[in-house]
Design a protein around this nucleic acid. Structure first.
Length: 828
DNA sequence: AGCACGCCGACT
DNA sequence: GTCGGCGTGCTC
């Protein structure tokens, strides 16, 4: 008798594929790309079928329990793509494959504990019962379905209960049951319709004996409408359920269900503008569209200054792709996934576009997913996760703001969606378009070396000029004395705003123009220092000072979220002489309000933008010029297009500039250029005022001149000298554990394993070091950085193999966490 | 990652 | 003997 085996990838952190036997009844049913339920230890897990064979070396294979899909949810293309990611980023294949499927669609088993029917009797029989036993019984009794998992009980009682639980099971007081996790379901909406072939009311009265007012009302409604939603009957027509029920019982009407798609609504309104492309835009659209038409894999770098109309180019490209019966993905950084951008795409593509973002409900997520899979949408817009959309015929993948660091996932799998967009395009013989006003040094290097085709948009689409940028060095801020103010601001204790900036704000307010103020730091004061002993209040769990947040009157850790009350005396020496320094958005908002008490000011940072609607409201109000000044973190720097903004102020551009990161200058240049681009987008000329204490840095003069090329030329030389990307790949191994010495020891062990790697001489392996945040959430951290020159190792294979070598040879100690991060973005 | 199993030590 | 805390090793 012939047997069939399936290779199954599971979403668990084990680097292995498992082999299961396919039972007879699934023989003709199971195929590659389907999800199946498999027994795993004493659990049941959802796995992906990635291969079928008729023989196996594996002994004692178990059988697949059931098949979850009637047709594959993963295509060969997706599996191939996932294999690449799994190999490149050293992550488990099942973990990568699960990126293609909404989490809540996976079925897993969970063991629940509930009370037996005669638990009271058995409890009394118990020779000696301790407190824990009663606690467990009580907790289960109080729970919703009278059943809980072990973890849930442990969380409620705050103690380990393994033994007592097993004892209770043995004594027949508690029983175990295996239940499956609930998956998100399709939404079915109930409708009612006439069953009497629209008999006139009088006949129905006679035949079915209806008489009450509500019944007559309902019948009239049924004649007027083919079908009505039940909730509508209740809400809009006040017809009670009992009336509906009586109709069903009498056979006058019937109830049926229709699948309803949950679509998130969009509050932002913007008129649809008819835009004519300029020559540069037209050229870009033509060139890229041609490659799309020819099924030619190619990567383009669309380098367009802020306001040059990149979005319009994207829209035309997608239009052309649809004409060729192809589909497209648009990746955007999460924070620029604004209602404004979505609205623009929706104006153009209407119902053909699916939007994904982090604030979708589970139901909305599922419906968007099935919509994409069933071919309802041709375009998907979303953050990095949208790269895994189940489109069948991808012609183009667009990565907007390709330089943005949010494309890199900061937990496993550590993929960079920008780089993987290129890979997925290649697999699909499609085109990848990287767009930015401030391309990453890596991408621009690739364009210059002809790996990508460079397309440049130098002109602003609206013909408005680029804003006038001025850098003010706060070391010499009194040089700007002599302005004539209506109120004497000398009397106010203004610490963070230069007179020049204040003066400009004043002018804009007078002209009823809007102002954007960037302060890339949350909170009120960044730290509190004791004058007597110099102690800075630190987080108890992290190696970072605490930030004071005035609106909640608490000190907050920006790494772990820990909060504590503010002390008025130094916790070290007891001195009451404490000084606060450094300003966050809260403090800036307050200073502005002191100077301009009549101005309408909103603050936008992750503390205030707690909900989607709040975010939409502020944006919408700012667009309609109901807000004069918007103060915010980098959340405000990208993608927003507000015609009334004529002044952008950067309160402190040194935040981030002085960090020990080879990309610090690049990041600052990008942030300043991006935020500058928000100014003067319509006919009114824009102005930008940048405050710094380090105007001697090269990047400032390049921001003033809007000279990306100049900045690049300067920066690329530093990269070459330091053997940094794009000349090399950087891999990071992070070792995390509670105990400092253990952490150091393990880091050294791994370092010495790396030193035994066969091709170690081709790599630069740096000795283990403590990162800037050497402790986070009570975990000490060590970093080992490995650089691999692309001239030696073009595909990165050597670097990846060296990490694989560590994985194979390092035996993990308990509680030590190891992270392998290829092409890491940050070393902090 | 879970989970079982088994060893050990503390406490009646 | 009872109870709870870990460490170890396995999962097709």
């Amino acid at each position: 008798l012939k047997k069939l085996f399936a290779n199954i990838a599971l979403d668990i952190p084990i680097d292995s594929i498992f082999t299961y036997e396919v039972p007879d009844y699934l023989f003709d049913y199971v195929s590659i790309g389907m999800r199946v339920l498999v027994p795993f230890g004493n659990r049941t897990l959802t796995g992906f079928v990635i291969g079928l064979t008729d023989s196996t070396e594996v002994q004692n294979t178990k059988q697949i329990k059931s098949c979850l899909d009637s047709e594959p949810v993963l295509t060969n293309e997706m599996i191939k793509f996932a294999k690449f990611i799994s190999d490149y980023y050293l992550s488990n294949l099942g973990e990568v494959l699960s990126l293609f499927i909404p989490k809540k669609l996976s079925v897993n088993s969970e063991i629940y504990f509930s009370l037996t029917d005669n638990y009271i009797v058995e409890l009394n029989n118990l020779s000696k019962a301790n407190e824990v036993i009663f606690d467990i019984v009580n907790v289960i009794l109080k729970s919703k379905d009278r059943r809980l998992t072990k973890k849930q009980i442990e969380n409620k009682l705050n103690q380990n209960i393994t033994y007592s639980l097993e004892l209770l099971v043995k004594k027949n007081i508690i029983q175990k049951e295996k239940l499956y996790t609930k998956t998100t379901q399709v939404l079915l909406v109930k409708y009612i319709r006439n069953k009497t072939k629209n008999l006139p009311l009088d006949d129905v009265k006679k035949e079915f004996g209806i008489k009450t007012l509500k019944q007559i009302e309902l019948y009239e409604l049924l004649i007027q409408n083919k079908e009505i939603e039940l909730t509508e009957l209740r809400k809009n027509f006040q017809i009670p359920d009992s009336t509906v029920k009586s109709f069903v019982n009498k056979g006058i009407a019937e109830i049926f269900e229709i699948k309803k798609e949950r679509r998130p609504d969009n509050l932002f309104e913007e008129e649809m503008k008819l835009l004519v492309l300029n020559d540069e835009q037209k050229n870009a659209v033509d060139k890229i569209s041609e490659s799309i038409r020819k099924n030619e894999f190619k990567t383009f770098l669309l380098f367009g200054v802020t306001g040059s109309g990149k979005t319009e180019v994207y829209i035309r490209l997608l239009e052309n792709a649809i004409k060729e019966n192809k589909q497209g993905i648009v990746l955007v950084p999460e924070i620029s996934l604004t209602p404004q951008l979505i609205k623009r795409f929706k104006n153009k593509f209407g119902d053909k576009i699916g939007v994904i973002h982090s604030k979708l409900s589970e139901g909305e997520r599922l419906d968007t997913y099935t919509g994409i899979r069933d071919g309802k949408y041709d375009i998907v817009v979303g953050p990095r996760s949208a790269l895994f959309s189940p489109l069948k015929n991808i012609g183009v993948i667009i990565v907007d703001e390709e330089h943005d660091h949010s494309y890199k996932q900061d937990n496993s799998p550590f993929y960079n969606a920008r780089d993987m967009a290129i890979i997925r395009s290649k697999i699909n013989n499609g085109v990848c378009v990287l767009g930015s006003a401030t391309p990453s040094v890596e991408s621009f290097f690739n364009a210059k070396s002809k790996r990508y085709e460079l397309l440049t948009l130098k002109k602003r689409a609206t013909k408005s000029a680029l804003p006038f940028v001025k850098v003010i060095d706060l070391k010499y801020k009194y040089a700007t004395d002599g302005y004539d103010f209506k109120e004497d601001i000398e009397k106010l204790k203004i610490k963070f705003l230069s007179k020049e900036l204040i003066y400009s704000i004043d002018r804009r307010l007078e002209n009823k123009e809007s102002i954007l103020l960037l302060q890339n730091r949350r909170g009120y004061h960044s730290y509190i220092e004791c004058v007597s002993c110099g102690l800075v209040e630190q987080c108890e769990r992290c190696n970072i000072s605490l930030t004071y947040h005035k609106h909640i009157d608490l000190l907050k850790c920006h790494l772990c979220g820990f909060t504590k009350k503010r002390n008025f005396n130094c916790s070290n020496c007891g001195s009451s002489k404490l000084i606060s320094s450094g300003a966050g958005t809260e403090k800036i908002e307050e200073e502005i309000l002191e100077i301009f008490p009549k101005a309408i000011i909103e603050r936008m940072d992750s503390d205030t933008m707690t909900s989607k609607s709040k975010y939409q409201k502020v944006l919408s109000d700012f667009y309609k010029a109901k807000i004069d000044i918007l103060v915010g973190t980098q959340i405000i720097s990208k993608g927003l297009d507000f015609p009334n903004v004529t002044l952008v102020g950067v309160v402190n551009s040194d935040i981030g500039l002085l960090l020990p990161d080879f990309r610090a200058a690049e990041k600052t240049f990008q942030l300043l250029t991006q935020v500058s681009g928000r100014s003067g987008r319509s006919d009114k000329p824009g102005e930008v005022i940048i405050q710094t204490k380090h105007s001697e840095y090269k990047l400032f003069s390049k921001v003033i001149e809007h000279d990306y090329d100049g900045f690049y030329d300067y920066e690329i030389k530093l990269r070459e000298m330091g053997e940094y990307p794009p000349y090399s790949r950087i891999g990071l191994i992070e070792i995390k554990t509670k105990d400092f010495n253990v952490c150091k020891e393990e880091a050294n062990k791994i370092y010495f394993i790396l030193k035994k790697f066969k091709y170690k001489d081709y790599l630069t392996i740096l000795t283990p070091s403590q990162p800037l945040f050497s402790k986070v959430k009570d975990q000490n951290r060590f970093h080992i950085i490995v650089k691999s020159l692309k001239s030696n190792d073009p595909s990165g294979k050597l670097l990846i193999d060296s990490f694989k070598f560590v994985k194979e040879n390092y035996t993990k100690q308990k509680d030590v966490k190891i992270i392998y991060d290829i092409d890491c973005m940050s070393f902090l």
